[in-house]
Amino acid sequence: MTTTSIQLDRQGRLLHFLTTEGLSRRHLTEILDTAESLRGVAERRVKKLPTLHGKTVVNLFFEASTRTRTTFELAAKRLSADVLNLNIATSSAVKGESLLDTLRNIEAMQCDMFVVRHEQSGAAEFIARHVKPHIAVLNAGDGRHAHPTQAMLDVFTIRRHKPDFPSLRVAIVGDILHSRVARSLIHALSILGAGEIRVIAPCTLLPAQVESLGVQVFHLPEQGLRDVDVIVMLRLQRERMEGALLPSEQEFFQRYGLTEDRLALAKPDALVMHPGPINRGVEIDSRVADGPRSVILEQVTNGIAVRMAIMSITLGNHARPDGEIA
């Protein structure tokens, strides 16, 4: 069974949200439209909806993350759910209880949704295969594989500014090799019919046969950024310098960093995006990050509405009597 099929019920409705790969445009549009309707909640005097009242959401983070966890927590709380945050260190040196044991224990606390982040690709899917059928699993990042809620908030942000996807040219710049954000975003953009998706990176930061994902490959921003509508910069992890992938941060910034000069190659109204947290002076110049084309903080705001949408859709599908959740 593939990842795509395990996240859907027999009617093709989302039970879990593990990856954007293989979903239909209808699935993504439903999430985007729902998020749009939920976006107003934050501007109300009482920032809460009763949708998930009485439900318990567990943030199960096996990999440190403050930002993503916080937005999931906020999304759940705005839907009136009870939230439990569990940070489980998984240093390979300390072999604790198995993932399955951890899972069984938390399941026994009668929760309704697991939001999972794990350093191993496929971890969220593993959990979805092993949880009790009434529990929804949301992937908050698994290894290099997928980060589908990030991809959805990215396309949500793009759609608010540039709703005509077929005419859209998007460039994703930086460490594609290790990026779950890039993989999920590429799938989401292709499903929504984006005109052209480009990746820009040195050969060391591109996965094998990356073209098979349906992208155009560029090795230099001078070529790849020309006339694009959206630029998505990826975070560069410091560890990459030691892995013989890059000589230095300075050289990376000089060749690939998004500066005002490079931004000028793109369309005049191009959006600058970044999944955060940003490394100023490594992948992006401060003037660009804080400049008028940057929608980086808007992405953060939108992340809450998008996660609220995904939570209410998946848990809603679990609640249906004909949901085929066995």
């Binding site: 790969e21 690709s121 993989r183 996965p207 098979s212």
Partner: peptide, 15 residues
């Protein structure tokens, strides 16, 4: 195996 599948699944490859 380092190829299309490892790229899709985000699994580190062995070429």
């Amino acid at each position: 195996h380092e190829g299309q599948v490892s790229t899709r699944l985000g699994l580190p490859g062995i070429l």
